[in-house]
């Protein structure tokens, strides 16, 4: 299993510092500090200042610590989720969900058809039953289906 080092122990405090500063700048510039009481920007600015300050401490602490190790496989669900959502726009939500489940079990986990198909079919059916039929969430039917239906 491949591992890779990503210096998130330093990246995170740098980012949170930036977010803190951004909130202070926006808060003071656009939203107002005090107007007969705390203004719209009062609370976020104070929090932003504290966050920026604490981030510096976190950064200093982080330098001493080892970087976390990442496994490449961690990104797969993330990438697969994006691909599935993209696919869902074209062929519809539930077919895409089914293909994702089946594809994952078959290609990544190398399950046999006999083992993987029941799992993907039952899961998709259960999700369809609960979300689409019962709770009537209007999931997109996909470009293709819409084109056929006119």
């Amino acid at each position: 299993m491949k591992t890779l080092k990503l210096n998130t122990r330093l990246i995170i405090p740098v980012l949170t510092f930036a977010v803190g500063v951004l909130w202070v700048v926006y808060g003071l510039k656009n939203y107002g500090w005090w107007d007969q009481g705390p203004g719209s920007g009062f609370f976020p600015s104070i929090i932003g200042i504290i966050l920026a300050g604490i981030s510096i401490i976190a950064l200093l602490e982080g330098i001493k610590m080892p970087a976390p190790e990442y496994v490449k496989a961690s990104w797969y669900p993330f990438i697969a989720a994006f691909a599935t959502v993209g696919l869902a726009m074209i062929i519809g939500f539930f077919p895409a969900m089914f293909l994702f489940l089946e594809g994952w079990l078959k290609i990544y986990e190398k399950y046999s058809w006999k083992k993987s198909l029941p799992i993907s079919i039952i899961t998709t059916a259960a999700l369809y039953g609960i979300f689409a039929m019962w709770l009537m969430v209007p999931f997109p039917a996909g470009v293709i289906f819409n084109a056929i239906r006119g």
């Binding site: 669900p77 697969a80 989720a81 599935t84 959502v85 939500f93 969900m97 994702f100 489940l101 994952w104 079990l105 986990e109 399950y111 799992i119 899961t123 998709t124 999700l127 979300f131 969430v137």
Partner: peptide, 13 residues
């Protein structure tokens, strides 16, 4: 191994 894709699907839905 099975939980990963199923939870992913549930999270998306």
């Amino acid at each position: 191994k099975i939980m990963v894709p199923i939870i992913t699907a549930v999270c998306i839905m």
